[in-house]
Every structure is written in C-alpha cells, then in structure tokens.
Design a protein around this nucleic acid. Structure first.
Length: 594
DNA sequence: AGTGAATACTCGT
DNA sequence: GTATTCACT
C-alpha cells in the first residue's frame, strides 16, 4: 500500500517531466504495474486461463516507447513474498480465488459484463505472466531482473549502485527505501511526474529542513507502512511531530505513549523490524550474481539470524535462477507454460523466440543483465499513422497570462469549418495556465465523441521551474527528431508548456474546464464522417480572429491554431505508438494454481 | 486540521 | 498500487 499521503506531502519535490530527460541512461522499471494494467483489458482471458497476448502487447509497447526516447530500461519484477508478509499474502490469494469463482459463475451465466468487471477485480500479476513477458523482452534485447523479494528494494539497490539512474514506479515506498530519482505516473507518451530527492527539503506541508533519510523513514513508518500499521490516529503529520522531537524511533513511540496515544503492545519491536526491513532487505546484485542487502549492514545492526524478516539467504544458484526467471520465485521450480488448457491452439511460429532463448546457455542470458550497451541504442524512429484521433478529445495546456474579459463567445460564422470558442479564466494560481480541448463534431453539431482525456499533449513540454520563464516553445511532433532541447526553429506559434498544476488533480481540472475554463477549440466537420479539417483552414480562421484580440488573448489562441494544425493532419507518429499486435493465442496467462 | 474508511481507477473501444 | 471524497475526532 505504500505510504498513504506521502506523495502529496512531498509535492514540492516533484515536477512534471518526461522520460526523455533520462535519455542515454539506464532506468529501472517497477514492472508489476505494467503487467497489471496490461492485463486489465484482457481480464477475462487471464481469469479463465485462455491464451491472450494483449498484456504482452501493452507491456512491449511501453518498453519500446522508452527505447524510442533513448532510455534504456532495466525491467525489475517482483519475486517471492517476505516471510512477514506471507500470511497476508495467502489471505489475499484466498479472497481472489473466491472472487474468481464468482466471476466464473457470472461468465457461465453469460453475464459477460458483470463477469468482466469481476475478473478485473480479482486480477493479479502472476509470475507466469512475468515469465511470458520476460521471454518477449529477451527476444527484443531488453534487460530484466526478477528481485528475490520486493521490486521496491531491488530498484533502490540498483540506483544506489549506479546501475540505474532512476526508477519508474507508482509506489511511494521507493522514497522510504532512499531512491533519489523516481518517475511516477508515467503515461504511454512518456510524460511523468518526477521526484527528485535533492528537492525534498522544499516540502511545505511539514518542515523537514535538515532532516536525515533516517528521520524521514521513521516518519513514514510511524504513519503506517507495509511492514507496520500505524497507531490509531497517527498519520504523516503527527508522526512528523514525534520524530522531530526524538533521537530514535523508540523515543518517538515513548512520546506517543506519554501523549495517551493507544499504542499496541510491543509496538517498538514492530516499528524496529520495519526500520530494519527498509534498511537491509535482501536484494540481488547482478554483478556478483549473489544476494546482498539493500545497503551494507551497519555495525550496530542486530545479528543476521535475528532478522528473518529481511528474506531468506538463498543459495546463489537459486538466487540467480530466480533473477533470470528460470524458476518461479515462490516455489523455485521451473515454469511450465505448456500446461495451459489449450496449448494445442498455440501457434508454432511465435513461440520460437521463447524456445531458442531457452536453449541458450545461462551465461548468455546473464550477460544481457550486465552488458549495458547491448540493447541501449534506440531504435530508429519510423513513422506510423495516427489513427482514431477524432474519436478522442485532446487536452493541452498552454501558458498564458490571465485572459481579460470579455471572453469571445461563439464565432458568428457557425457554418464554418472550425468554430473556436473562448472562455475567460479566473486567475487561480500564481502560475496561470490554460487548458485547451478539441472536439470533433458532425454536421448536426452533435458531439461525435465526448471521451474525456487524451494525453496527446502531455508530451508537449517539460516544465520550467522558474515562473518567469515558464513558457517555452512546443515541439508537438518532435519525437522523431532529436529533441533534447527546445526547438528554436519552431515557428513562432506562441508558447506552450505542460502546466505545473500544483492543484493538479486531473479530474478537478477537467471539471473546471467544463464550467468556466479558458479556451475550447471545437472542430465542426461538414461530413457526417468525422474528417480532419485542413490545417490551412484552421490557420486562416484563427488568424482572422486573432486580429481582434489583445496580445494576451491572441497568444494562447495562436497556440490553439498551431496545435490544432498539427493534429488535423494525419500525423506521423513513432513506431512504438502504432501498437504492433502479437499473434493471437500466442501466450498463456496462467493464473497461479493452488 | 488530520486521520481513516469507502470508493473509483488502472485498458481500450 | 494510486487518487479522491467524506465523515469523524
């Protein structure tokens, strides 16, 4: 569950960014999330044990996206459960099994939709799914590694050793484990929220100036973590106060007791175990091919035989087999993917990479783990065609001074190809931002699609921290060229940035947009068949309207025109976005048998 | 104000 | 795993 509320608390240490900032670097990937999200759309097949390749396609598309931006991923998968978490793990398994039964009943009753939703609820990323994905990763030359226990700790270790430069994850525990650079909320286009530990003292919600990692760790533990529940009524803020007044975690607990907090008996032992687990959990060192601790045991650490909660000391051969995904991290037995219900349906062709891979001597697989240059060259970006744009709305954010009223309302020529409506925005934050939405309509002005959210423009620009220079040129279709730097050759279409919405709860922003926000650009197509409006038309119309506007107004409007023009064409897009499909029936998402 | 329980979401059409 | 809302202290 991570640390509840930690990421909002540390919002000042995070910024909007893009993975391409990590080009030419190795980045660890907490792969569980991609397995899980990828399985979401094929929850039924996964639940029934039917062959599907959808989750593999999802995973590989994201993997190729990283490579497209020159980022060299090292995929880290979760391994076995820590001894202390085994019981809760079993409990979860039982709950899942129950719901799966329920889902299967619904399925047999032909209640497809209900069954689908139930299958989604009991969805689980299994070692078997990881194995299938890993075989494809190997076939495409990606590096990977199965952690002996938790991927969080493994990622922290890899970064601490300089093997990776950052970690892609959704888990706030990485902060507690001491990671420096964490890429949160990565979307399919590479946009993300980037945590930078060097900025951690900027935190405003609590004063952590001068705090050590140990103090931050204690605060998190006392507020409740995976290894230790919090005392009732204690969250991050109160934990902060106790840690601030204490020299160690025992003293903090003592102060809580003195305040009348109902602290469980032997709570000191509990939080101390948690502290030690964050400090010393066992991880895999890919260089020595041995288990090590996430950081070296300190002199005052308890003897190792008194810390079984760090995970077993596995035999090096076993540890390596787990890391290379030769064996299941739970039972140390080789995978048997052939025992699927319909292995006969499995086509021979696509299975070949897997087979040939298996024949290879282990050394070769191990080499992939350590040979950085092997797969690090980004694939040349070839173009595809952007499909289905009109089925989506697109949101963009552009920087702007507050737009002065009166707002321009619907343009008089309603029959024109493009209708741009402007609304004023009330200045809300110091950093003004405008959101733009495009919508496709048919001849009757019916909205063709009201789908919310496309992150099309999320890739537009990284944030600039200084408010004075918060605006930058956009390179909307930059991705095929080198695009390290803001493109100065870009036509003067105004300035654009992904907004640093510190109030950045997307749904909240969308709500505001519905009611009062800024600028809405709507395309009205003459055809009933939604058809892209020509960029030229868009540009002309915008330009004619711009003349009547004050500079403050016209600036964002130019952006609208530019953005709109970019995407009303069939746009060249990078290959990874074209989503290659793997042959159906190729993979076997076995659920773990019990 | 801070905590914590409840709920929705993760895909892709 | 997260984010968001809302009731309770």
């Amino acid at each position: 569950m991570g640390i509840t509320g930690l990421l909002p608390l540390l919002s000042e240490a995070q910024r909007k960014g893009h993975v391409k900032e990590f080009a030419n670097k190795t980045v660890g990937v907490d792969s569980y999330i991609w397995l899980y999200k990828g399985a979401f759309s094929c929850a039924v097949q996964v639940g029934l044990g039917e062959p599907t390749s959808k989750y593999v396609t999802f995973f590989m598309t994201r993997a190729r996206m990283l490579r497209h931006y020159g980022v060299e991923p090292l995929f880290v998968f979760d391994g076995g459960a820590l001894p202390s978490k085994r019981e809760t793990e079993l409990e979860r398994q039982r709950n899942r099994a129950e719901r799966r039964q329920q889902a299967m009943r619904l399925w047999q009753q032909s209640k497809r939709k209900a069954a689908f939703e139930m299958f989604q609820k009991c969805l689980e990323a299994t070692p078997q799914m990881a194995k299938v994905v890993i075989e494809q990763l190997k076939a495409e030359g990606f590096r990977y590694l199965v952690a002996p226990f938790e991927a969080d700790a493994q990622l922290a270790y890899l970064e601490s050793q300089g093997i990776t430069s950052a970690s892609i994850s959704e888990d706030s525990d990485l902060v507690v484990f001491g990671c420096q650079n964490i890429i949160f909320k990565l979307d399919q286009y590479g946009a993300a929220t980037i945590f930078d530990r060097t900025r951690i003292e900027r935190t405003k919600a609590v004063n952590i100036k001068g705090w050590t990692d140990a103090q931050i760790r204690r605060m998190c533990i006392l507020s409740g973590c995976d290894y230790a529940a919090s005392a009732p009524g204690i969250g991050l803020k109160k934990a902060h106060r106790y840690v601030a007044r204490s020299a160690d975690i025992n003293m903090a607990v003592a102060l809580m007791r003195a305040d009348g907090v109902s602290v469980p008996e032997a709570y000191e032992d509990c939080v101390t175990r948690a502290e030690l687990t964050f400090l010393y959990q066992r991880v895999y060192d890919p260089r020595s091919e041995m288990l090590v601790h996430v950081r070296p045991l300190a002199a005052d650490a308890p003897p190792i035989d008194q810390m079984p909660f760090l995970g077993e000391s596995l035999d090096p051969a076993v540890a390596r087999d787990i890391a290379l995904c030769e064996v299941d991290p739970f039972d140390y037995k080789p995978f048997d993917l052939s025992r699927s219900s319909d292995s006969a349906a499995m086509p021979a062709t696509p299975a070949k990479p897997e087979e040939s891979e298996k024949q290879q001597p282990r050394k070769q697989s191990a080499k992939k783990l350590t040979d950085t240059r092997a797969a690090s060259k980004p694939s040349p970006a070839r173009s595809g065609t952007l499909v289905s744009f009109w089925k989506k709305s697109a949101f963009a954010t552009i920087s702007a001074k507050p737009i002065p009223p009166p707002a321009t309302s619907a343009s008089p020529q309603a029959s024109s190809a493009v209708d741009i409506v402007a609304h004023k925005e009330e200045p809300a934050e110091e950093d003004q931002a405008v959101r733009v939405r495009f919508r496709a309509r048919d001849a009757n002005s019916e909205i063709v699609s009201t789908d919310q959210q496309s992150k099309f423009f999320a890739k537009a620009k990284r944030e600039d921290t200084s408010p004075a220079s918060a605006s930058e040129h956009v390179d909307v279709n930059n991705d095929d060229e080198d695009s390290e730097e803001p493109d100065a050759a870009q036509p003067a279409t105004g300035t654009l940035q992904t907004v640093d919405t510190q109030s950045a709860r997307p749904s909240a922003v969308v709500d505001r947009l519905e009611s009062e926000n800024t600028l809405i650009a709507e395309s009205i197509s003459g055809d009933s068949q939604p058809e892209p409006v020509s960029a030229a038309t868009t540009q002309v119309l915008c330009d004619s309207q711009l003349e009547e506007l004050s500079p403050a107004e016209s600036e964002p409007k130019k952006n609208v025109a530019a953005l709109f023009a970019q995407f009303t064409h069939k746009e060249d897009i990078p290959e990874w976005m074209a989503t290659p499909k793997y042959p159906k029936g190729n993979f076997h998402p076995l659920t773990r048998d019990r």
